[in-house]
Amino acid sequence: MRYDASFIGLYILDVLGRPVSRIPDRGNVEFIDEIRLTVAGTAGGTVIDAAKLGLKALAVGAVGDDEKADFVLMTLEKFGVETAAMQRISGVPTSASILNVRPNGDRPALHVRGASDHFDVADADYDRVLDAPIVHLGGTGLLSRLDGQRSVNLLAEARRRGRTTTLDLLAANASTAHLVLPLLAHVDYFMPSIEEAQDISGRLGPEACAEFYLGHGASACVFTLGGDGAYFAHRDGTRVRSPAYAIDVVDTTGCGDAFDAGFITALHRKMDLETSLRFAQASAALVATGLGSDAGIRSFEHTMETMRNLPVKG
C-alpha cells in the first residue's frame, strides 16, 4: 500500500485569535496577542499532525474554489501530505471557522459549512482512498453528502479489505445518533470526546457510554476526557484509564484531532495499548500548549520525549 493512513472527511480553514475576553462594542477595536490560520477539521487537523509524527498520509476531502482553498492545499503539501485525492469544488466556499480563544482555552466558534457538505467518495475511488492499512473517517454530522449510507458503505468496504478503521466526530449531539450508530459495526476504534459520547448516547460517564457504543457494534471506544485524560474500552472486556498531562493550557483547539493522530501513529508503530494512550495524550498535550490545531507537535521523536518526561496530573 502507498500510504500509512488515509484521512477522509472534514477539512476546515481555522482563523484563530487569542486571548479574546470580549467582543468590542460597535466598531471598536480590541488588541490581542496572536492570530493564526491553520488547517483543521476532524480529518484535516488529524492528517497534518499525523504527517508531523512521521506517517505517510493521504488527505481525502474537499475545498472550494476560493483563496481559503489555496491555503489549505498549500499547507497540506508543506507538511508532506498527499493531496491528490482532495476535491476542489467550484461555486462553493471552503469550509471555515473563526475561533475567539478565551484566556482559559475555551474557543467559541463561528462556522461556514461550505465544501465539506458537497464532499463524497464515489465507489470508483475506493481503490485510491483505501490505499492504506489504517482508514480514519472524521467529521460525521458535518458531511451532508457522505453522511449516512455512503459512510456505512465506505467503512464496510474498508473493513472488507482488511483495513483498521477509526472514527471521530465534530460538534456531534443527540441529533447525530442516526448517522453515527449504523457506522459502529464497521469501526475498530470509535474516538469521540466524552461530551459528544454523552450527548449522542444519553448516558453519563465513560463507562456507561462505552457499554452503549460497544453494544451498538464498535470494537473499541477511546474517549478523550479533557483534563481528566482518556478512557479505553474494548469489547473483549479491557478497560484502561490514562491520566492527562500537567500542562499550562493555551488553546484546546484540535486537541482531539491530535489525540487521534497520536493514536493512529501508535497503531502504525504497533505500540502496546498503554503506550498508545500515553503517546496520544502527549500529542494532545503538545497541541494545547499553542494556538491552533497544529501547534506544539514537532516530530515523532519530540513527542516520544514529551511522553516520557512531561508530568501527569496527580
Rank of each mutant, 00 (worst) to 15 (best):
M1W: 11
R2L: 15
D4I: 15
A5V: 15
S6G: 10
L13R: 13
D14K: 01
G17S: 14
R18D: 13
P19F: 03
S21W: 13
R22N: 08
D25A: 07
F31K: 05
F31A: 09
I32A: 02
I35P: 10
R36V: 11
V39G: 01
G41D: 08
T42L: 12
T42P: 13
D49A: 08
D49I: 06
L55P: 03
L55S: 03
V60G: 01
G61I: 10
V63F: 03
E67R: 06
K68W: 13
L73S: 03
L73I: 09
V81N: 04
A84E: 05
A84G: 07
A84I: 06
M86C: 06
S90E: 14
G91A: 08
G91T: 10
G105P: 04
R107G: 13
P108H: 07
P108Q: 08
L110E: 08
H111E: 13
V112P: 09
G114Y: 11
A115W: 14
S116Y: 04
H118P: 03
H118S: 09
F119P: 14
D131T: 05
D131N: 06
P133K: 11
I134W: 06
I134P: 09
I134G: 09
G138Q: 12
T140I: 15
D147L: 06
R150L: 07
V152R: 11
V152F: 12
N153M: 10
L154G: 02
L155F: 08
A156Q: 14
E157Q: 11
G162T: 15
R163Y: 03
T165R: 10
L169D: 15
L170F: 13
A172N: 15
A172L: 15
A177K: 11
V180N: 08
L183E: 12
L183H: 10
L184K: 10
A185L: 11
D188E: 12
M191F: 07
M191V: 13
I194K: 02
E195N: 12
E195L: 10
E196G: 05
Q198R: 08
Q198V: 10
D199V: 07
D199Q: 14
S201W: 08
G202E: 11
G202R: 06
L204V: 12
C209V: 15
A210L: 08
Y213F: 15
L214H: 04
G215L: 13
H216P: 09
H216R: 14
S219D: 14
S219G: 11
A220D: 07
V222I: 14
F223G: 08
T224F: 00
T224N: 03
L225G: 00
G227L: 01
G227C: 05
G229L: 01
A230T: 01
H234T: 02
R235D: 02
D236M: 02
T238C: 02
R239L: 02
S242G: 02
A244Q: 00
A246G: 01
D248Y: 04
D260K: 05
A261T: 05
G262C: 05
F263D: 00
T265S: 10
L267G: 06
L267N: 13
H268D: 15
R269Y: 15
L277M: 12
A280D: 05
A280M: 11
S283R: 03
A284Y: 00
S293E: 04
D294K: 07
I297G: 02
R298G: 12
F300H: 14
H302C: 11
H302D: 15
E305N: 13
M307V: 01
P311Y: 00
P311F: 00
G314Y: 00
